[in-house]
Amino acid sequence: MTNYTLKADAVTQIFGRRLIFDNINFEFKSGNVYGLAGHNGSGKSTLAKIIADIIAPTRGKIIHKLNEEEIASEKLHNHMGFVSPYLVLYDEFSAEENLKHFAKIRGTEFDTERVNFLFNEFDIYNRRKDLMKGYSSGMKQRIKFIFALLHSPELLLLDEPTSNLDNEGKDAVYKMIKNVSEKSLVIVASNEETDLSLCTEILEIEKFKPNK
């Protein structure tokens, strides 16, 4: 098991004059599944983006550590996998082409055996050479999981992971979360009870609102 820790130190986010959440503190460790819960617009995706270093918090900071060593911001993408409904892959490429490009841009080898295993896990192997523009939203969501798992990340960040998925797709995701969380740190941002039932600890974002 990898020793990955994620620490939030007094993270506050304000958009314009609206306070999204205030003074969030937590420490997450690998080998667990953590949940970020809250109703629509509560700031789950915002917190997920802050954790992924896509947006900067207004105050406070997020510290990623692997084996007690802090990971520099510009190297974080090598250690993290991210899935969300607003993540878009390239429609003009096939699923396999997308993944090949991503592996090369990351500077990693394209592991055909692993990719084929993941295509089979998410039941999309037969469509891997089709252009993404012909995919349904559920199939695109499945490809995003392969995209996130391609480089075997130590941190897997899943924002609304089961959106657009049918029951078979959801089962594949839950099975994957269980497997990955044995070695890595998994964070699930969702308001689906079935998604959150996998979590060992849940962070209620509502509690970090000023009027709560």
């Binding site: 992924a52 896509i54 510009e74 190297k75 993408h77 993290m80 991210f82 607003y86 993540l87 878009v88 892959l89 390239y90 991503f102 841009i105 990351r106 995209f147």
Partner: peptide, 8 residues
């Protein structure tokens, strides 16, 4: 976002 997730 995809680019931000794969490259420095």
């Amino acid at each position: 976002l995809t680019l931000q997730l794969i490259a420095a």
